[in-house]
Amino acid sequence: MPNGIGACATDDINPEDLIRFDHAGATDAIYHAPDGRFYATAGLCTHENVHLCDGLVMGHLVECPKHNGQFDDRTGAAKRAPVCLNLKTFATRIQGDAVFIELP
């Protein structure tokens, strides 16, 4: 995988939760979904730049901790007002017990 970056260990994130991952001046979010898969998106809400890492994950929905905007962690799709713009998403890869994400 080109540009794959080791972000965390698989057991660093509880199931149905997320962590913040800062890299090269950007903030991303890495999710451990209930289906056991890992997903990655931009880490700031597209509404008011609030860190999503403090939000609640419910299934595949991550909720902004400030205004309750919601995104689908698989697609980055905005799912509930006040968010209107989708999140960027990044491919992930598991190698051993490490989570890698592909950043542009």
């Binding site: 509404h47 008011e48 400030k66 205004h67 007002a81 006040p82």
Partner: peptide
């Protein structure tokens, strides 16, 4: 008011 309240919290 859904949006005004979002601004109130921001």
């Amino acid at each position: 008011w859904r949006w005004s309240h979002a601004r109130h919290h921001t």
